[in-house]
Design a protein around this nucleic acid. Sequence first.
DNA 1: TCTTAAAATGACTGGATGGTCAGTCATCAT
DNA 2: ATGATGACTGACCATCCAGTCATTTTAAGA
Lengths: 217, 217
Amino acid sequence: MPKIADEARTARRDQIIAAAAECFARAGYHATTMADIAETAGVSKGTPYLYFPGKEALFIALYEEWDCGLAARVDAAVGGLAEPARRSPRTVLAAVASAIAAHVTGNPQTCRVLMEATTLAAYEPAIAAKVQAANAASLDQLTGLFQAGIAAGQWPAGADPALRARLFMAGLYGLMSQWHLAPGTFPLQAAMGALAGTDAVGPGEHRGDTEKKGDGT
Amino acid sequence: MPKIADEARTARRDQIIAAAAECFARAGYHATTMADIAETAGVSKGTPYLYFPGKEALFIALYEEWDCGLAARVDAAVGGLAEPARRSPRTVLAAVASAIAAHVTGNPQTCRVLMEATTLAAYEPAIAAKVQAANAASLDQLTGLFQAGIAAGQWPAGADPALRARLFMAGLYGLMSQWHLAPGTFPLQAAMGALAGTDAVGPGEHRGDTEKKGDGT
DNA sequence: TCTTAAAATGACTGGATGGTCAGTCATCAT
DNA sequence: ATGATGACTGACCATCCAGTCATTTTAAGA
């Protein structure tokens, strides 16, 4: 009987999510209406409800899709490293930062959705759960990376890998937050690169060459 | 003629702003209604409009008040340093981080309002203007601090002060953002201390002793 | 081609919200 | 004491929006 092809269903779903991303990024969660999303997607007002239970569920689906997009990019970047480089935690870290910067620069909407999610997480338990889970996973991965780096002597022996991971994540998020307010003001790629090259608390294996100009406003 | 005492007017205003802070921090900007604020302040629904043109103006007033609160705290912390210490940019930086951590820990609402403002800034030009101005001012101050620190040899000569300042600010903001989602998960004070003690890209005058345990979730 | 069930539509609803305003009440100069 | 001035009140309005559902359209199978 005439059930729409699975493929078509998925396409519609993606179309709606993409429209939602555009709208949420443009106007924020609360200022975006379901009607906006439907119109942007080119469907009627009722259609989104055939694919998602409601606005919040749609946002969560979007968040997961986009976060996955980011995670996938990061994995791809790490996987794409040449074998010897992949063994160096420091190099991996730089690749992670670079991949994130590239993805965000290319899709500024990612920034917006990410920030919106983080802010919403303060009041919406369902969203908080997703955001915290994503954060914890990233933190774990980074902690592992720093652990390896410390073991390999790329960071000082006494360093606390969990703390390093947290500071690194905080730096990434803070940079995105600053950048999304005024994208033209400083080069995200360079700043994130510096953050990765940075030796929080350690004897400086690296030096001035990782520094780039930022124009300061 | 019977004009209310200026003192009384200011008190009412502050009372409304305090109520707004509580409500915005509890439920976020959009989910907070003017009726909520009025009720929390113990006044009628019309009264806030006698002191502020509307919801957005009230939020902006709150943002400025709270931001000033933070800036004042920072200034006080710096001013309170003993004279020789105040001459050391590194020490000043640590004092700044410590003052912010203390203020935020004591008033978690600050975190919420700050994040809410940053997110809103993406869509509300009036708020964006205030946030960007505040950011630029902080960035300038920090840049000056790093400049002095570099001149004094506390950071490597080649370092870019503007970039350092940006990374430091990003770290602070990112830490607040992580902390407000799960205040119990890690000690903000210690993390911010580590951030200030950190030698992004520099030879490490400091070492492991600035590291504290963070439990990693 | 024709049947039929699922998909899509869009008018509708019930509730909520920012903001207003005519009227009330407290205060202070006289 | 008293009355004029302005702070305060809270019912009210116009608007908006998430979500529903009866109806129409679409496409897969016979």
